[in-house]
Write a protein that binds this DNA or RNA. Structure first.
Lengths: 196, 196
DNA sequence: ACTAACCAAATACGACGTGTATGTCAAATT
DNA sequence: AATTTGACATACACGTCGTATTTGGTTAGT
């Protein structure tokens, strides 16, 4: 036994983030009670406010975690494509599909921006955005794309993708609409391609 | 004098919506106190709950109003362009510029989706979306665009535009970034064009 | 081994905000 | 003129957040 102090603290942080993830996803940020949430993992609000400062702090931590997972997965998928260009399209499609997850939607797409402000100001620096911007820059160097501002292109691409996901998720039969969304996304993205 | 009952009621609705617009824009939905808001126009929460049901109801009314104004303005601007295609690009640019207004941003882009859910489910039916979808459909008929699902295209376009606006607004010097955003938007949109 | 400083977490507290239930008074109706 | 309707005000109950204070175990120093 003889648990170090820091160990249990780290464990508690992990527990709280997990609980936050669940509560925020199920009830939404506003309706999530910090009392319930902490009690669910055998703690009290004291632990929360000590570790994360306030309710927003917990949300920020949760968002960072999810964002990181998304970026990693998208990168993995993008790397599996043959071409770099194909890779970026695949990444975009991956974002759309990931954003169908209610957890991602509620926390990252809806409550995140509303509570934390624009993603580009987030502490986590939004790994997803950074990743797609890198992809754009690489493609620019290779002359695959028309000259554009990489940050702008990345923002618009991810914006389009995430918005597409919201649309798909809100539609009556998502499985029917998803392919349309992905197709439209790729058509749109092809506007960036340099003329052959 | 002898004011009709319906007259004063309509006046009060207008007052409350105006107050809501101001409060939601300045403080955000969550931090806006309904007590203050109603007191500002010489009423109480009683009037609010009678007219709009609940806090969300007021937000919905405010969003509907702003959305309508935006759609009208965009249509106006789009009609001024020579070409239909140019018109759609102009509309997109107009959305980006309008979304720089803090009021639009806070209420329609951030709090609106978080509190009311996806725009396509909004009671107001999001005039902006409907309008751009119409434009897309017209262009499709004329064979200007590659075959795409019009709803999907509209969603992605408006998503990209609005996201671009968020980015511009959050940047350090918006006036410098805005042209980049508009340029990137138009480049992206050109992906929809049928090959010449 | 004993004590003292420390600190993560618990507990207690104050302020506030929403939604609802009840009351009231002017306007509409007959 | 009496009655009914309904728009709005008032009062209350309940829940929540954030902070100030306290507690008890952990670490370090002698």
């Amino acid at each position: 036994m003889a648990r170090r102090r820091q160990e249990t603290m780290e464990e508690n942080r992990v527990k709280l983030i997990a609980a936050g993830r669940k509560a925020f996803a199920e009830k939404g940020y506003a309706a999530a009670s910090m009392d319930e949430l902490t009690a669910d993992v055998g703690l009290t609000r004291g632990a929360l406010y000590h570790n994360f400062g306030d309710k927003r702090g917990l949300l920020a931590a949760v968002v960072t975690e999810i964002d990181g997972e998304m970026a990693a997965r998208a990168k993995e998928i993008g790397a599996g494509a043959g071409d770099h260009w194909q890779g970026m399209l695949a990444e975009g499609a991956a974002y759309i599909e990931m954003a169908l997850d209610p957890e991602v939607q509620r926390i990252v797409l809806l409550d995140g921006p509303a509570v934390l402000g624009d993603p580009s100001k987030w502490p986590s620096q939004n790994s997803c955005l950074v990743a797609t911007q890198r992809s754009v820059e690489q493609l620019l160097e290779k002359g695959v794309l028309k000259p554009v501002d990489p940050e702008a292109a990345a923002r618009l691409l991810s914006g389009a993708a995430l918005n597409a996901a919201l649309w798909v998720a809100a539609s009556d039969n998502p499985s029917d609409v998803l392919p349309k969304a992905i197709d439209a996304f790729q058509t749109l993205a092809s506007g960036l391609l340099a003329a052959r």
